[in-house]
């Protein structure tokens, strides 16, 4: 096995092991979307009528509509949590251990990113399992189709988190940034309402939602759950991933970026 793959295996296995041993983190990741599904969505079911929009071929309940948004929310929170742990690792020093390994820095950071995505996928499947027991039944093959979509959307959100981690100097600053990122990104998207619903209240809000890359991640997941490819969403998600990964790698470049600023 090449040194690259050995390092990747080690980083993925380490993250998976931490995930298994940190039960509180796992439960917290599940409780959040389940509260939205069971409390929020149930309450809004009567208030919000949804017309038939792709990829749905019939009328659906609000709980069914909100599932892809909650799946993406799990990945969003996980990405921010991973970024937070990167800032923590950097302050505590363990990031240095990773960055002094004799491998290209971009590869080490990519492995770290992939490890976070792996954890988010485990969380998503646990959530979909509970939702199934709650009565939200999706097409059986949708559970398989959604896997590559989760990988791509997880990479995109992880790259955003990596970029934030590369620009933020201190742990304390990160909490504020999380609030400024997570809430706008989640609420100004198609996670909770379809675009036509948003347009009824404001065309500006609709446009913001349509541009938000998180909306594209949600739609990519939504279509994949019904065994359909949303090529436009995939394109935007891939583009966002590329841009933020490049920015993050720039930020972690030892000749520039956060490493030299950190020491001031």
């Amino acid at each position: 096995m090449s040194p690259y793959l050995r390092a990747m295996n080690a980083i993925l296995a380490r993250e998976a092991l931490r995930f298994v041993t940190q039960r509180e983190r796992f439960l917290a990741a599940l409780v959040r979307p389940l509260v939205w599904l069971i409390v929020f969505a149930a309450g809004f079911r009567a208030a919000l009528g949804l017309s038939i929009i792709p990829p749905y071929q019939t009328y659906i309940t609000y709980e069914v509509y909100i599932i892809p948004g909650l799946v993406a929310m799990i990945q969003l929170f996980n990405a921010m949590q991973s970024a937070l742990s990167l800032v923590y690792d950097r302050e505590m020093g363990s990031m240095r251990l990773l960055l002094t390994a004799p491998l290209p820095r971009w590869w080490l950071l990519f492995c770290k990113l992939l490890a976070g995505v792996l954890v988010s996928i485990l969380q998503v499947y646990a959530f979909l399992g509970i939702a199934y027991l709650y009565g939200i039944r999706l097409p059986p093959m949708g559970y398989v189709w959604v896997l590559p979509a989760l990988l791509v959307s997880g990479l995109m959100l992880g790259a955003v988190g990596l970029f934030l981690a590369s620009t933020i100097r201190q742990l304390e600053n990160f909490a504020g940034v999380m609030n400024f990122v997570i809430f706008p990104v989640f609420f100004l998207s198609t996670a909770l309402y379809p675009l036509w619903r948003m347009a009824e209240s404001s065309t500006l809000l609709r446009d913001i939602c349509a541009w938000n890359p998180f909306s594209h991640a949600v739609e990519l997941i939504r279509f994949a759950l019904y065994m359909r490819l949303n090529a436009e969403a995939l394109g935007w998600v891939a583009l966002t991933f590329g841009v933020f990964l490049a920015l993050a790698l720039w930020g972690f470049d030892p000749a520039r970026g956060m490493m030299t600023r950190k020491a001031r």
Partner: peptide, 13 residues
């Protein structure tokens, strides 16, 4: 080989 001033062990492992 490097030993940093700050501890860099994974305490859960």
């Amino acid at each position: 080989g490097v030993v940093f001033q700050q501890m860099t062990l994974d305490l859960d492992l």
